Computed example of a mutant assay.
Amino acid sequence: MSNVPVTTWFLEQNSSADLLPAAAPEGDAVRIVRAEVSSPEFSRFLYASVGGDIRWTDRLGWSHARWREYLERPGVETWVAYDHGTPAGFVELDAKGDGVVEIAYFGLLPAFRGRRIGGHLLSYGTARAWDLAERWPGLAPTKRVWVHTCSWDGEFALVNYQRRGFTLYDTEVALEQEAATPGPWPGAFAE
């Protein structure tokens, strides 16, 4: 396998006023709900299902205990979009301390992309990053929300973040080994 250049963009908001919300999809079929019970199984399902075709691999080897440890940290939240009762995507928030919140993961399952859910979910998740301290006594109020995306993510990822009011503050290019996408299960993308 060969090495390919991968661009990573780092974006931020420094005020809740920076958020430019997207319109919600028409009708009431899409709901966004916080997963309040730590569930390594559900979180791994979301991670593998959303990231399977865009090379999310860093957490695939996590043990059940590692997932639980991460999910039970104060200030870690998972917000899930449901379309007609079916999980469509998620946004994961991770409080980093001193009022900084990372959007650690965000995305949609492939079947739900291109249906105007992503902008709405990102808007909702970013708003929840800004009011995170209201749900977690002891956390400092949010003063910065940041996220990174890369050239392997969906083709509209960077544009979606910018349309939601995130501004670019750093860019990195690194050579990474080209590998097949893992899919949510073995052979998921085989012809």
Rank of each mutant, 00 (worst) to 15 (best):
N3E: 14
N3A: 08
P5N: 08
P5R: 01
V6H: 00
W9K: 01
Q13S: 05
P21A: 10
A22G: 08
E26Q: 14
G27C: 11
R31L: 15
R34N: 03
E36Q: 13
E36W: 13
S38L: 06
P40F: 02
F45W: 08
L46A: 05
L46G: 00
S49M: 13
V50S: 02
G51R: 03
G51T: 10
D53Y: 08
R55I: 09
W56A: 12
W56P: 14
R59T: 08
H64V: 09
W67P: 00
R68I: 07
E69N: 07
P74H: 14
W79Q: 10
W79E: 06
V80H: 00
V80Y: 01
A81S: 10
Y82L: 14
L93S: 00
D94E: 07
D98G: 08
V100H: 14
V101G: 03
I103P: 02
I103V: 13
P110I: 12
F112C: 02
R113E: 15
R113A: 06
R115S: 05
G118C: 11
G125V: 02
T126D: 00
T126Q: 01
W130V: 00
A133K: 06
E134T: 13
R135P: 04
R135H: 15
W136L: 08
A140C: 05
R144E: 09
V145P: 01
H148S: 15
H148Y: 04
H148A: 12
S151R: 01
S151E: 07
E155L: 11
F156D: 15
A157E: 01
Y161A: 12
F166C: 06
F166G: 00
F166H: 01
Y169E: 05
E172P: 01
E172N: 00
A174T: 04
L175R: 02
Q177C: 06
A179T: 05
A179K: 10
A180P: 07
T181H: 08
G187N: 04
F189L: 15
